[in-house]
């Protein structure tokens, strides 16, 4: 088991290097250091001297991949790519183009993201499982049919409409929660209610349908029929067997997204002005602060890989037949 995990982690390195190269090439082709300097120095009265100074300070005046003038190993190390990418592997994100410490920013902005995504995930699971189980229980009846149609209808509405609608009705008309913003500590709750609710409603359609399918599959299995034949009541079968066994694929499906909860949701965060990592990324994109974007890409990849490893492990935990090798 441990050796397997170690192997997976070792396997992650080439992937992360690949990610790094792709993002690096993309961003440096897009944005020359000159562009970055101009972006950061503002728009009024910028001269060339200021730009070269800015580049020099940040090490952007170095060659991109290969330093012809340097000595020996420094030919590779004394380049923009090496200086900017290798440090990522020890989670030293360096400073953003605007001069802030990215690592510190990430550690600060992680919490608001989690304050939205974690309740969203838990409440979402509860709600979707309840709905899915209800529909599965009433399979074939009008409850099921109308429920499924409702799900398809809800799936067909763009998430943007849920956000706009929620903010408009609950925040503006009914004065139930603040329209947007965030606060620390206990005060954060009133700000998180609406984003969580919107995320929840937006996901009902697809998730409920998916969970219903899982439960239906479970109900079609032999042991359920056996249990019923033995005289167990429908509800008992449902709760004790179908629900418990259906949870396995659901929870292992959840494990893969667990790490990405840190990243938060790009759209929801920027609509509700939540200072999490999602809005951090969006801001960085629009401000073209590529030091941040690259760090976030890297972080996203790391979390994705952790998610994959966790999924594998969780499979072995819930199903002893699966062996890791």
């Amino acid at each position: 088991m441990i050796s397997y995990i170690l192997r997976r982690i070792a396997y992650a390195f080439p992937i992360l290097i690949g990610v790094n190269i792709i993002t690096f090439v993309l961003f440096f082709v897009v944005n020359t250091p000159d562009d970055m300097a101009r972006m950061q120095l503002g728009m009024k009265r910028v001269d060339d001297a200021a730009i070269s100074k800015w580049k020099e300070e940040r090490g952007y005046d170095k060659p991109i991949l290969w330093n012809q003038d340097a000595e020996a190993i420094e030919k590779i190390t004394d380049t923009i790519f090496f200086q900017n990418s290798v440090k990522l592997f020890i989670f030293d994100f360096g400073r953003s183009d605007s001069g802030r410490d990215i690592g510190y920013d990430i550690s600060q902005r992680m919490w608001p993201s989690l304050a939205i995504t974690v309740p969203g995930l838990i409440l979402g699971l509860l709600a979707y499982i309840t709905f899915g189980l209800t529909l599965a229980f009433f399979r074939g009846s009008y409850v099921d049919v109308s429920g499924v149609i409702l799900c398809v209808v809800m799936m067909s509405i763009s998430g943007l409409f849920y956000i706009i609608g929620g903010q408009y009705l609950i925040g503006k008309f009914f004065h139930l929660v603040p329209i947007s913003g965030y606060d620390t500590g206990f005060n954060a709750i009133k700000f998180t209610v609406l984003p969580v609710l919107v995320g929840l409603v937006g996901g009902i359609g697809s998730s409920t349908r998916w969970y219903r399918t899982i439960f239906l599959e479970e109900m079609g299995k032999d042991y359920v029929r056996t249990a019923k034949a033995k005289g167990l009541s429908e509800t008992r079968v449902l709760y004790h067997h179908v629900l418990m066994n259906g949870l396995i694929p659901i929870l292992t499906g959840v494990v893969v997204i667990l790490p990405s909860l840190f990243i938060g949701s790009l759209i929801v965060e920027s609509f509700f002005a939540i200072p999490g990592l999602g809005s951090y990324t969006i801001d960085a994109i629009s401000a073209q602060d590529f030091a941040i974007v690259r760090s976030m890409v890297f972080l996203g990849s790391v979390l994705y890989i952790i998610g994959l490893i966790l999924t594998d492990i969780s499979y072995t935990l819930v199903d002893p037949r699966v062996r890791l090798n």
Binding site: P14, I15, G18, V19, I22, T23, L26, F27, V29, V30, N31, I263, L266, T281, I285, Q288, V293, M296, V297, G300, S301, Y304, I305, L308
Partner: peptide, 24 residues
């Protein structure tokens, strides 16, 4: 390896970078 690498890059960021590339 190829698809795990591509998959692990958050899609939105990849799209953002590429659209900027096109604008260049």
């Amino acid at each position: 390896y190829l698809y795990t690498t591509l998959n692990s890059i958050p899609g939105v960021l990849l799209i953002a970078a590429s659209i900027l590339l096109l604008q260049v």
